[in-house]
Design a protein around this nucleic acid. Structure first.
Lengths: 139, 139
DNA sequence: TTCATTGCAAAATTTTTGCATACGA
DNA sequence: TCGTATGCAAAAATTTTGCAATGAA
């Protein structure tokens, strides 16, 4: 936050960023707000939304999608090493995994189409090993 | 719609499905509604939302995300061959591409973790060739 | 001191729901 | 005929904004 343009490092922003960085989880605005309020009773949800925009613009956090049914914006720390997500449609568990395929594909596409990539989002949905046995049917 | 459980093929559903199938685009509920209303003046937005759920459950359409800033649910026909998306952050254009990397990765993950995959969503963001020249800076 | 940031409340946006009526099978 | 689907209006859920007051630099 000690940046060029007059951005200020307020206690609110400090707390919100810390909540996101300390959580291994993937959080929506309201969850971030609830957790941050444990440290700052008066913190307002509107401040959370405004701060998320600022932190995202600064590249400190990433907004993500994990599953088609997601209705809310989801955030996680941008400091985690590049990874992707698998969501189990039965138990809802989100697993992270790594792979070189995307880096490779990215390079191929940049060469082929002249695109300059800045973000990748890959998410799989399906059934985890545990649930796959029970849920052979359905979508 | 000529299915098992008492689902009915109403004119509304027919029109909504046709709008999605005939559009090469990626549509949100309101856009679908506007286009469908050209064929059915009285069509209600609530009906569109309800129909989207039904069509999605039947596997006739897919819900997707293309970019982190997307606020609305986006749909496209499920009959298109498997493909992925790149969104230009400058001009907003959405390009589709194909690749074998995901199929391969999918198989690897199924083997490694025992997951059973049902959906993949891969989206890249960045700058298209045209915009890349002008927009070397910014997120 | 100055201007970015906050809290609060109100508005905007997007999606869902209740209910009486209409209509497909 | 029977029960699913629709239209309408109202509610819910999520995010954004206006504005006066606050506080970081």
């Amino acid at each position: 936050m000690a940046h060029d343009s007059g951005l200020r490092l307020t206690p609110q922003r400090r707390v919100i960023l810390r909540v996101i960085e300390e959580s291994g989880d993937h959080l929506d605005a309201e969850t971030i707000w609830k957790r941050a309020k444990e440290h700052d009773q008066k913190l307002n949800l509107a401040t959370v939304y405004r701060t998320l925009v600022v932190l995202k613009d600064m590249g400190l956090i990433d907004q993500r999608y994990f599953a088609r049914k997601h209705k809310r914006e989801i955030y996680e720390s941008a400091h985690k090493p590049e990874h992707y997500h698998f969501t189990c449609k039965a138990c809802g568990e989100v697993s992270e995994f790594q792979t070189g395929h995307i880096t490779e594909l990215r390079a191929e596409l940049e060469t082929e189409f002249g695109w300059r990539m800045s973000h990748s989002c890959l998410c799989f949905e399906g059934y985890c090993a545990k649930c796959a046995e029970r849920c052979a049917e359905s979508d």
